[in-house]
Write a protein that binds this DNA or RNA. Structure first.
Length: 245
DNA sequence: TGGAATGTTGGAAC
DNA sequence: CGTTCCAACATTCC
């Protein structure tokens, strides 16, 4: 489920619920009092990267799908929902195996919308500025940093670095300006390509590097290692992806 | 079929 | 007190 483009699809699929009043709210979430949602209309459904935000007049609930979360619209599944919302017209929005949290601050103060690669507010110059502020950071860590590239996940990371021919172990500060610019540009571009392929159910077949064995450009084996602060899988080609720094 | 994976958090450890 | 480490969560696929 994760990665920003998937959340973008969720937002598109749930526009029908905006403005509707929640008449039933339940589920096995322990983190919020679901009864407080009953009687409230949905003011907006928004995303910030991998966060799905349900805005009501009196509260904002944040859904995070982590690695395994799923959702269903107007149907159930074989597991009990973590959060299930029912509306007067009989429509239903179900969330499973996700993190549910109430946000008790002003969301506009909390979220930097310019960091969301899927957002109209995405600001590439601001992203470059954030990158220049941490020159020692590895390229693989930079792409996964949600404060800089909100919505980018491990697949997008590997594909972006392959596209721009940068070794994941490169340091941000050692990247030539054109590469830094390409990194930021492709983080958004690839995310929208991801979106299109995901909608067409052809995402996996478009992977060039992620979980691949042979470099499609050089036809030599990819290197594979767990890299960076979070020890995430990286796939890269020693021949066509250059290591800076 | 056991292990790994599109991810993050919170608390322990240092 | 700040930073780092690690278990925990939970589902699907190979």
């Amino acid at each position: 489920m994760p990665e920003g483009p998937s959340l973008y699809i969720l937002k598109e699929q749930t526009t029908q619920f905006v403005g509707k009043e929640i008449v039933r709210a339940e589920g096995n979430t322990w983190a919020i009092d679901t009864t407080r949602m009953v009687g409230q209309p949905i003011v907006s459904l928004r995303t910030w990267g991998k966060h799905f935000l349900i805005e009501m007049p009196a509260m904002v609930v944040r859904i995070h799908f982590l690695l395994f979360g799923t959702y269903r619209i107007n149907e159930g599944r074989d597991k009990p929902p973590r959060l299930s919302l029912g509306f007067a017209d009989g429509s239903v929005l179900n969330f499973y195996a996700c993190s549910v949290k109430e946000i008790d601050q002003d969301i506009d103060a909390m979220y930097d919308w310019a960091a969301d690669v899927m957002s109209d507010a995405w600001d590439p110059a601001k992203a470059r500025k954030k990158l220049r502020a941490c020159p020692a950071m590895l390229a693989c860590d930079a792409l996964l940093d949600q404060d800089i590239f909100s919505g980018v996940g491990n697949i997008i990371k590997n594909e972006v670095l392959f596209r721009i021919r940068v070794d994941p172990r490169s340091t941000v500060g050692a990247l030539p300006p054109a590469k830094l610019r390409a990194l930021v540009q492709e983080a958004r571009q690839y995310s929208f390509d991801f979106l299109g392929w995901k909608k067409a159910f052809t995402l996996k077949q478009h992977w060039l590097a992620h979980a691949q064995k042979i470099c499609p450009r050089c036809h030599i084996p990819f290197h594979k290692a767990k890299l960076g602060k979070s020890d995430r899988r990286s796939f890269w080609c020693e021949r066509c992806q250059k290591r800076y720094g």
